[in-house]
Computed example of a mutant assay.
Amino acid sequence: MANIYPWGDSRRYNSYSNYFKREFGGRVQKLTIDAGFTCPNRDGSVGVGGCTYCNNDAFNPSYCTPQKSVLQQIEEGIEFHKVRYRRANQFLAYFQAYSNTYAPIERLRELYGQALSHPQVIGLVIGTRPDCVDEEKLDYLQELNEKFYIAIEYGVESCYNKTLEQINRGHTFEKSVWAIEQTHKRGIRVGAHVIFGLPGETREQMLAEAKILSELPLNTIKFHQLQIIKGTAMEKQYQSNPELFNLFGMEEYFNFLADFIERLNPNFVIERFTGEAPPRYLAVPPWGHLRTDKLMARFEKLLEERNTWQGKLFMET
């Protein structure tokens, strides 16, 4: 008989798909939206050039373009996902590209209101930076949260200020902690995005982030192996100084992840373990041609072989 883990099912980590089944009784699909936002480290208010690793085009679906209205992107997204996920009839509008709270609150009300006016949209997932929220915006999202599913995902990327400075992030880890705590205080679901393999970070430093992050009031978390994307400042850095980088091989990364999630708070829902960019955007060859579902099957097999699971060592760290 399969083990049942603290989150209530037999998977060896607290999975996003099963979280939605518990929350809504079935599949809920995210619809990615590009609403034309930018970032404060691009427009000069904090910095210029953006994060050194970033080329947002590498992660946007084909139907996403700011030239289309939010409602048009939602309609096209529903049609796009019908092919693969026929049973999905509830959707979350996922404001993904760049920093999706980086605008006056009147503009946010307009854009979020458009999304929530669609009859099949039951809530919002908002990707942003921790320095792009304030008390007023969080209070507004708290109001929406009383009627809809609202989640904010913050790009934390690293717990180390030296790394954040090197990648031109433009904010500190302390700012991430503030934003996460303020969001949680208002009852809004809050997530964090973390990149593994950033230049200068050792394996020991990355593993230590499990304890640091586990102490935060997070609901969800996303992990992403560093990929060198064409056309970025990091590509130039990699070409000039490849010795600064220690890019993970697939098996090495999965073993690292297993070590990491053993130490991770089991209450955190893990949304994603790997990043997936189209091969044409990659300056360094990808791990073969395996899609995310195949990669996850290999990772779960590794967890089984190691007889480990999320949070196994959590109380010991």
Score class of each variant (00 low, 15 high):
M1G: 02
Y5V: 06
G8A: 03
S15K: 05
N18C: 09
N18F: 13
K21A: 04
L31S: 04
D34P: 10
A35C: 13
G36M: 07
T38F: 04
C39G: 11
P40F: 00
N41K: 07
G49M: 03
G50W: 03
C54H: 07
F59G: 13
N60Q: 11
Q72V: 03
Q72E: 15
Q73A: 02
L92F: 11
Q96Y: 12
R107E: 05
E110M: 15
H118Q: 14
L124W: 07
T163L: 00
I167M: 08
G170T: 15
G170E: 09
F173P: 01
S176T: 15
W178K: 08
I180N: 08
K185E: 11
I188C: 00
R189L: 14
F196I: 03
G197M: 03
G200H: 06
T202C: 09
E204A: 01
Q205V: 10
K211V: 00
N219F: 01
T220Y: 07
Q227W: 10
I229F: 04
I229H: 02
G231Y: 11
G231S: 13
M234L: 15
E235M: 06
N255V: 10
D259W: 11
F260D: 00
N267D: 08
N267S: 10
G275H: 08
L282G: 04
L290H: 12
D293G: 02
E304Q: 15
R306A: 10
W309P: 05
G311I: 08
K312G: 05
K312R: 13
T317C: 08
